[in-house]
């Protein structure tokens, strides 16, 4: 039987991620989401397909997820990040019962049972505790986003920031910096504050071990350490935490195809054309 190929596309507020898979993952592709990329999801898909040496016609089924999932006109199905992250983690780390996804504009907690999502929480309309918050703080403190985790681990003291508002916290951090407070102490305090905020959100789910952290925030070692301290035990991070949702989407695409084949019903698919999104 000819091998089937599936794609998962996760358009987040900051990053767009694509996973192409057959029996195994063939390619993954991550680019920044900007106004253009949101419109040009087709271009990102083309790049991911080129990496996998496939054409769009080779794909059996495409699932889109993330905030921009409605901007993927060629997706066969839209599924929320909650289900996609659950599926992705269930595949990679079957022992995980709680997932924390720290994305660009929101943080989610997902409770899993046998790899299925059974409950979830999402942060309110506030940027504190999200990837965007970290980005702005890194910018304000004049350090690279990629470095803030490592830098924070060298802190000797944690500076407590009283504000939880992104704008005021940045202002407060810059003021502290001008007073001579070392940047590593500020970053350590910042990570501790974010970990506390994430903990109080996810605690609503009645946290169960193992805990996995996904999304861009999972690449920040300072934040991971702060979370582990808050939970009181280690958390697990998948090898490519950024693409967990896209991986889950691709796996769900495969599930849909197998389910349709099993039931003998046709697989409902959208037009096989890589169109760009039209908003108006």
């Amino acid at each position: 039987m000819k091998e089937q190929y599936f794609a998962g596309m996760d358009i987040g507020s900051r990053m767009t991620k694509v996973v192409i898979m057959g029996e195994a993952v063939l390619s993954s592709h991550v680019v920044s989401t900007g106004p253009e990329q949101r419109k040009l999801a087709n271009k990102v898909m083309e790049e991911a397909l080129a990496k996998a040496k496939l054409s769009f016609d080779d794909l059996t089924y495409v699932v889109a997820t993330g905030y921009g999932r409605i901007n993927v006109p060629f997706a066969d199905k839209q599924i929320t990040e909650i289900t996609c992250h659950a599926r992705g983690i269930g595949h990679l780390l079957p022992s995980v019962k709680t997932v924390i996804d720290i994305g660009g504009q929101d943080t989610k907690g997902i409770k899993l049972k046998d790899g299925r999502p059974v409950d979830f929480v999402m942060n309110d309309k506030c940027a504190a505790g999200t990837g965007r918050f970290l980005e702005l703080m890194a910018e304000g403190l004049g350090v690279e986003l990629e470095d803030i985790g490592k830098i924070s681990l060298t802190a000797r003291h944690r500076t407590v920031l009283s504000s939880t508002c992104t704008v005021f916290a940045e202002q407060e951090a810059v003021t502290e910096l001008s007073k001579g407070v070392p940047v590593e102490d500020l970053l350590a305090g910042l990570h501790e504050a974010i970990a506390a905020r994430i903990y109080s959100l996810v605690a609503r789910l009645k946290i169960e071990k193992d805990i996995a952290v996904t999304g861009g925030g999972a690449k920040n070692i300072g934040l991971i350490k702060a979370l582990e301290e808050k939970f009181g035990y280690p958390v697990v991070v998948p090898p490519e935490p950024l693409v967990t949702g896209a991986l889950g989407a691709a796996l769900l695409a495969g599930d849909a195809a197998r389910e349709a084949a099993g039931s003998g019903s046709p697989l409902a698919r959208s037009e096989r054309r890589l169109n760009e999104a039209r908003f108006f």
Binding site: Y67, I82, P117, K125
Partner: peptide, 19 residues
């Protein structure tokens, strides 16, 4: 936020289906 609210509702519907 309508977008956020609908995103939550979408995820909840999927959770119901999963149950």
């Amino acid at each position: 936020s309508e977008v956020d609210t609908h995103a939550r509702i979408d995820a909840f519907i999927e959770t119901l289906e999963s149950h």
